[in-house]
Design a protein around this nucleic acid. Structure first.
Lengths: 123, 123
DNA sequence: CCCCTTGTACTAGAGGCATAATACAATAGA
DNA sequence: TCTATTGTATTATGCCTCTAGTACAAGGGG
């Protein structure tokens, strides 16, 4: 049973998107696999101290994106076939790198400088 | 005279923040230096096809952050002393790298993998 | 001197995000 | 069967961002 205690919310991005991203990460890391159950809307709302309606919005998004499925009164479970997993990896990895590289180039950082800076901040 | 034609707005971040970031970048790149004039609020609004009030909000922010100064009816100019320049570099460089490294670690990417991925996306 | 631009301020409204408070049908479990 | 939980839906409120429209004092240039 997945929980949301470790999810630290920021004040920049919509909460319901941060929730969906969190579940995607758990899937990508193998911490959540197909069939794994998710707590009820109300339970998650309590874990995160947010409104149940916000949680419901997150589930709506996750269902639309295809990695969570809900059967009424039986709760929601993770669903991640090959294609879904690939899509999640793409979003979380390639998209992360792409936007970072774009920003780095915007301020004229060289590849060498970028690698050096990352090296400094890695530990 | 700085212009805003090259600034491509996204639909994720507040417009007035994107505007401030754009000016910071121009300063960091040396494309804008102390004394450089900025177009009027209304002129910039036209260049970006946004509302003058939004532009005014950006100026309020930029003045608060100290890299733009306005003298009534004479328009606004860039102001960037040593300390301001350092702060901008910190925000645009170190902050960029820091948040990227954090995200990369969230999905268990190794330093080596990250460098490889960046290398792929660099060109 | 007059007009136009400028910075600044204000009200009003739309849309997205989040909260608060309910409501209800369906089902699992005692 | 009764009760508690669950997913789902609705209405209202508040905040932030952005747009739209208007207003006004101050200064520059003809």
């Amino acid at each position: 049973m997945l929980n949301f205690y470790e999810l630290k919310l920021n004040h920049r991005d919509p909460v319901y998107m941060q929730m969906a991203l969190y579940v995607k990460r758990q899937i990508l890391l193998g911490h959540a696999v197909s069939g794994d159950r998710l707590p009820s809307r109300r339970e998650i709302a309590a874990q995160l101290s947010v409104n149940p309606n916000t949680v419901q919005k997150a589930f709506k998004l996750m269902e639309e994106e295809g990695f969570v499925r809900t059967s009424s009164t039986l709760g929601s479970v993770v669903y991640a076939d090959e294609e879904t997993l690939r899509r999640i990896e793409d979003e979380l990895t390639r998209e992360l790198v792409r936007s970072f590289v774009d920003s780095a180039k915007e301020i004229n950082l060289s590849f060498k400088t970028v690698v050096a800076l990352i090296g400094e901040h890695w530990d």
